[in-house]
Each structure stands twice: as structure tokens, then as C-alpha cells.
Amino acid sequence: MKVPKRVFAVLSVPMQVGVVRSAIIGEYPALRALLGTISERLTDRLMQELNCRGDLD
């Protein structure tokens, strides 16, 4: 799928942070807590702002 320039998809934060294969969590158990901390702090609005900054820089 091609996305036109200057069009930003609206993605939910859990989709951004919360998907990790169980094998990876098994290998790095501390990752679960770290991702939980990150997902608590990232709002949809903040994630959109950060995505825009990256695309416009």
C-alpha cells in the first residue's frame, strides 16, 4: 500500500508498542515491563506528533 506524502495514518499506541513475539519475551523477560512503561506514557496524540516529526525532518 502506498501512502501519499503528508498523510499520516492514525495508529493506536498499543499497536505501536504492544506486539512482541512470545519467543522474544521469553528471551528478554524484562522487556515486558519496559514496554508496559512506554505504552503507559505514549498517547495516540503524542505518537502522531512523533511520527510527523520524523516524516518532516
Rank of each mutant, 00 (worst) to 15 (best):
29 P>T: 02
15 M>N: 10
42 L>S: 03
18 G>L: 02
54 G>K: 03
40 E>T: 14
16 Q>Y: 03
11 L>H: 08
36 G>T: 11
40 E>L: 12
23 A>C: 05
49 E>S: 03
31 L>N: 06
4 P>W: 01
19 V>T: 12
33 A>Q: 15
19 V>Y: 10
9 A>L: 09
22 S>Y: 10
40 E>F: 11
52 C>N: 05
28 Y>C: 12
33 A>L: 14
29 P>C: 01
47 M>E: 06
48 Q>D: 01
30 A>N: 14
30 A>L: 14
26 G>S: 13
19 V>Q: 12
4 P>N: 09
48 Q>M: 03
31 L>I: 03
53 R>Y: 05
10 V>C: 01
52 C>D: 06
46 L>C: 04
36 G>L: 12
52 C>Y: 06
16 Q>R: 07
47 M>Q: 07
9 A>K: 05
47 M>W: 04
41 R>C: 12
45 R>N: 07
26 G>R: 12
53 R>T: 00
41 R>Y: 12
50 L>N: 00
57 D>A: 10
46 L>G: 02
46 L>S: 11
44 D>P: 03
16 Q>I: 04
33 A>Y: 13
38 I>G: 06
15 M>H: 09
44 D>S: 12
4 P>H: 05
52 C>V: 11
30 A>E: 15
50 L>P: 00
32 R>K: 15
28 Y>G: 01
14 P>L: 01
48 Q>S: 03
16 Q>E: 08
26 G>I: 05
36 G>P: 03
15 M>C: 08
13 V>S: 09
20 V>N: 06
27 E>D: 13
27 E>K: 15
14 P>G: 01
26 G>E: 14
38 I>C: 13
57 D>T: 07
2 K>D: 04
20 V>G: 03
56 L>Q: 11
32 R>F: 13
14 P>D: 03
43 T>Y: 10
21 R>P: 00
23 A>N: 14
46 L>T: 09
25 I>V: 04
53 R>S: 01
3 V>K: 04
38 I>D: 08
30 A>C: 08
8 F>V: 01
25 I>F: 00
42 L>P: 05
40 E>V: 12
57 D>P: 06
40 E>W: 08
40 E>M: 11
40 E>H: 14
29 P>G: 04
10 V>M: 03
40 E>P: 07
50 L>K: 01
57 D>E: 12
32 R>E: 15
26 G>D: 12
10 V>P: 00
14 P>I: 03
55 D>W: 00
34 L>Y: 15
18 G>T: 02
57 D>R: 12
8 F>Y: 14
25 I>W: 02
